[in-house]
């Protein structure tokens, strides 16, 4: 976490053709700077924890367990947790289960379009170590090599109660300022990009989807 990326220069955007390269930004993202006054930062963190806009990415079976969260029985709204249909407005990225290589590409694009500070929650055992798809030809086994995960909720599948417990755990982490996945991603962008490009063979998108 000590590397300073300002010295690294703009992104290469190698995957794009020269005429496409002009259409996309090659600027590096900037890490989130906390407010200089500690009380303000603590207050803002508390607000962030209580206003979680969720972008649900139903990659796998997890999406089925995600929907009941909003129903009468579980009602995640009372914890300040609400779904948001577009990545631009969301602050929590919910990965609903296993991620195949093809989905991973979409996950990266959606994640990078979210505005920081942003948090990633991965549901199920599959993002942790592949779960029952550990030997599959297209399921990633260690999800945090590609996207910084702030919270894993394990289980196959985790029941909505567990998801609620996970939401509360995420709130606790955000309040304490420990959910720093956004900055980890930006500060180690080259490492993450190298990992992503190692498995995504047809990288035909900009290096950072603004």
């Amino acid at each position: 976490m000590t590397t300073k990326d300002q010295s690294l220069g703009p992104l290469a955007n190698d995957g794009l053709s020269p005429e496409e390269r002009d259409l996309f930004s090659d600027a590096r993202p900037v890490p989130y700077q906390p407010y200089p006054i500690e009380v303000v930062e603590k207050f803002v963190n508390w607000v962030r924890a209580n206003s979680l806009f969720m972008l649900a990415f139903g990659t796998g079976c997890g999406a089925v367990e995600l929907n009941p969260l909003m129903t009468a029985r579980y009602d995640a709204y009372r914890f300040g947790f609400q779904p948001r249909p577009t990545p631009r407005q969301a602050s929590v990225f919910m990965i609903g289960g296993y991620a195949s290589v093809k989905t991973l590409k979409r996950i990266i694009r959606s994640y990078e379009q979210m505005q920081g500070p942003k948090f990633v929650v991965a549901l199920g055992i599959c993002p942790v170590n592949g779960g029952m798809y550990w030997d599959s030809y297209n399921t990633v086994n260690q999800f945090d090599l590609y996207i910084p995960v702030d919270l894993y909720i394990t289980g196959c599948m985790p029941r909505p109660e567990v998801l609620l417990a996970g939401v509360l755990e995420l709130k606790k982490k955000i309040k304490e300022g420990r959910a720093d996945g956004h900055n980890r991603y930006i500060e180690n962008l080259d490492w993450y990009k190298a990992n992503q490009k190692r498995i995504i063979k047809n990288w035909d998108m900009p290096d950072y989807s603004w």
Binding site: P29, V30, Y32, V44, V47, R48, N50, S51, F53, G80, R88, S91, Q115, G116, P117, W210
Partner: peptide, 14 residues
């Protein structure tokens, strides 16, 4: 109110 404060505290990079 919290939503508004949180959104004001978010970064704009686009």
């Amino acid at each position: 109110f919290l939503d508004i404060i949180k959104n004001l505290g978010k970064r704009t990079a686009v």
